[in-house]
């Protein structure tokens, strides 16, 4: 379809269509990028400039706001907590989720349908709501207000994705490869470590990063379950009414950075992951 349009002659009415098409693409790109650019301007400007009016439309490359952010009481701790929770979530959701993904892709077993339903249910439920009763449960077990406790909730959020994504990744590895390894002297375990694992590693990394971002971005459960050990999102949310603009924008910017890296890192897998996770 696109090739036909490229070859169109100069007087072809399709040329106008082509122009509209390109304009629309550029416009939609701008729609995504311009708000991000505004945030960048605010982040790389001094606190005075951020609160001034009217705004300049180019950043002044002043690190004042970011320095203020770093120096703000509790902010660096919150940042550290965010990273910690996300890292634990990443490790837990993959180590717990990947075996199930493997089982779904390789075995037919009784209860498989029920199990898939359980996984899909979790994805269809407003999960952060579960933070409420968990808050009570955690107080009883001493997990309240801990990084690990929150990571458990975030893992619940990330697990359905981990299972479905690894399921689709494992399904992409022909079972013949494993069978060949078995006939060549491998046990189930060595066939996995020598053949399946090396092939799946990039995809696993992508889904691990996905789990990281799910946790990194989560606001509600983090706000409900932490008091002293706030994560960055919870901290920013709590201080929305009181904190100055430049603090909000610098915080917002720090929140956005991993997202940019994440989408870049997993771009190859994004569509493959969803293509099958659909079913």
């Amino acid at each position: 379809m696109s090739e036909a349009t490229v070859d169109a002659g100069p007087d072809d009415p399709r040329k106008a269509g082509k122009f509209v098409y390109i304009a629309a693409v550029v416009l939609l790109c701008a729609w995504v990028l311009v708000p991000l650019y505004f945030l960048l301007i605010n982040t790389l400007s001094s606190p005075e400039a951020v609160n001034a009016f009217p705004k300049r439309f180019v950043p002044e490359f002043d690190l004042g706001s970011l320095t203020f952010f770093a120096g703000f009481e509790g902010m660096l701790v919150a940042l550290k907590n965010s990273i910690l929770v996300a890292a634990i979530t990443m490790v837990m959701s993959i180590t717990i989720g990947a075996p199930a993904g493997y089982a779904l892709s390789r075995f037919d077993f009784k209860g498989k349908g029920l199990f898939r339903l359980l996984i899909l249910l979790t994805r269809a439920f407003p999960l952060p709501l579960l933070a409420l009763p968990l808050a009570v449960m955690f107080i009883r077990t001493g997990l309240d207000d801990t990084v690990f406790g929150l990571a458990l909730v975030h893992t619940t959020l990330a697990i359905p994705f981990a299972v479905l994504i690894t399921f689709s990744l494992f399904s992409g590895i022909p079972i013949e490869l494993e069978e060949a390894a078995w006939t060549l002297g491998c046990t189930r375990l060595t066939a996995f470590t020598k053949v399946v694992f090396p092939l799946i590693l990039p995809g696993i990394t992508a889904s691990a990063i996905f789990a990281f971002v799910i946790s990194w971005n989560e606001v509600f459960a983090a706000a409900v379950l932490t008091i002293e050990n706030r994560t960055l999102t919870a901290f920013l949310l709590q201080n929305l009414d009181t904190s100055p603009l430049h603090l909000k924008f610098a915080g917002g910017f720090i929140l956005v950075v991993p997202a940019l890296i994440f989408i870049f890192a997993v771009r190859k897998y994004l569509f493959a992951m969803w293509g099958i996770a659909n079913r």
Partner: peptide
């Protein structure tokens, strides 16, 4: 183009709120 269009996928609702607050 796909990379640009999917960037918001990784951005939290809080960060999105802050971004539009800047506007």
């Amino acid at each position: 183009v796909l990379y640009v269009w999917t960037i918001p996928l990784g951005i939290s609702d809080l960060a999105a709120g802050i971004i539009w607050l800047a506007i």
